[in-house]
Structure formats: C-alpha cells, structure tokens
Design a protein around this nucleic acid. Structure first.
Lengths: 134, 134
DNA sequence: TCTTGTGTTAAACCGTACTTTAAGTCTTAC
DNA sequence: GTAAGACTTAAAGTACGGTTTAACACAAGA
C-alpha cells in the first residue's frame, strides 16, 4: 500500500542506468534540488526518480546540463513559468526533429556507400579498382 | 574543361562548413593524408573535398575521429580492405538506425510533456496546480 | 620598402560531462 | 572493537574535439 519508496544513490543509479558519481555530479550542478539529505546521505524519492527520467530524456536529445538546470529551475518556480516551459519543450521537439532529419540524410549517404561497396564486391574479386580513396 | 580545381585551406573550410583550424586538426590527426603541401601550404583537390564530405558524414553519425581515421587508413590500403570497409558501413548504418529510434522514443516523451502543458494551460489560468516538479 | 593577407607550426588552452582519488563518516556484522 | 561496505566531500584528472596564441614565412600591391 505504500508506493512512496525511497532509494539510496546507488539504487537510483541502477534504476536510471547512470553511475552514482554522475548523480552526485548532477546534484553539484543543481539539477537535483529536491533530493533530501538524511544524516548527510542523499535519499531519492519516486518524484526524484521521475525528475531523473526527465533529465535523461532532455539530455538524450542534446540539451546541455546547464539548460536542463534552467528548465528545472523554472519548474520549481511553479505555474507562473508554465508557458515558458511549454515553449522550451516545443523548441526541444523541433531540435529533435532536425536531428532525426539530419541522421536520415546521413543514413542515405551510408546507403549509397553500401551499394557502392556491394557492387564492387559482387563483380568478382581481383579486377583492379584503383583503391586509395574513401 | 578542367574540373580538377584545387583549393586553399580556407576555401575548403568554406565549402565543407568547418573552420580552417578544424581542417588543420584533422590533418594533425591523420585524417587528410592525401592533402598535398606546396611550398609548405596545404592544397585541397576535389578528391580531398570528397574525403572531407565522407568525414563529415561519418562524424555526423557519431563516429569518433579515431575510428574515421582507421576507416580512411583501410581505404588507402586498397581493394584488400573492401569487405572490411563494407562491414564498417553496415555497422554504422545500424548505429544510426538505433540513434533514430532512440530519438523517436524521446520525441514521444516530449510529446507527452507538450500535451500535459497544453492541457494545463487550456484549463484557464489561476487554478492552483502545485508546481515545483518537472 | 613596407604593409596586408594568407598561410604555417607547436603548444597551450577550452568546454562539456563526467570519473577518479583521497580522506573521512556511519552502520551493521562478527 | 574492529573490519566491511555504502555513503560523503573537495579537488584533481580524463576524453573528446576542437580553438587560440605566438612566432614566423611568403606573395602581392601601394
């Protein structure tokens, strides 16, 4: 009946899939202002774990630690910053869409190279191809 | 009738969209072994420009400078390394596909957040939402 | 001739995101 | 009581991908 479990730093690290020292680093950088400290030790609540998941999501899309901190700071300021946070999410969505488009462009390049190698490799071995270029 | 233009380092930098110092760095790291030096100055051929484009493509998909150098080294060894290079391209394609899938996952997360903010912002201002979390 | 512009090098520096180290605290088990 | 194991801190170290700096070379134009 009690979902409100709490976690040690290494449990939290295991759940999120980062190292404990990374979590300490995030804390130092002000990204975990809600993590309580009981007798000097960090205690991660479910809400802290949820914050970490958001952090990982933003990080995965290329947002810097500093920008994530600013976003989290806004969140701590309450409803007055809702529009601002909404705008950040919309902007980050656009960034991700551009990243995906860019990767697709590069994937097409790789496909061309694949076809190139495939065609050379299929036309028998030892035809003399003047190598030396990429 | 002469396509075989040659370029100075700053022309090459302009064409590729990187800085001249980045090109010098690539050269230092062994990524531009074919760039000639005429009276101490680098001269970029069309083939060098083509190599730079491949370099940028691989870099854009997350391949490290070192791994790109290894790939280029293989290319300079000629046809004997065709299969190896083909394998590298296939592997890189998989890496890119995983990156795209990962970004799409994170995009879905951002979409959820967008909808969340949208719903709060639409249900009028000043309802008291207990902010403070991300 | 002298300045301007473009190139060169080696070596030092930079930002980002951590990781590692050293020294110490606290709890629990034996 | 003492050893182990998990936690703490500040500070230094690391990897990557460049950038910046300082000092110098060379060619063209006024």
């Amino acid at each position: 009946m009690n979902d409100k479990k709490e976690y040690t730093i290494s449990e939290a690290a295991g759940i999120i899939g980062v190292s404990a020292s990374a979590l300490r680093y995030y804390d130092r950088e002000g990204l975990l202002p809600n993590v309580r400290k009981v007798s000097g030790k960090r205690v991660f609540s479910e809400a802290d774990i949820a914050s970490l998941r958001v952090l990982e999501c933003l990080k995965a899309t290329g947002m810097s630690i500093r920008d994530i901190r600013e976003y989290f700071d806004l969140a701590r300021q309450g409803d007055a910053t809702l529009e601002e946070r909404y705008a950040i999410i919309l902007r980050q969505k656009e960034i991700v869409n551009r990243q995906i488009a860019f990767l697709n462009d590069n994937l097409r390049e790789l496909n061309r190279k694949e076809q190139y190698y495939k065609s050379i490799l299929s036309t028998a071995a030892g035809s003399g191809h003047e190598g030396g270029r990429n």
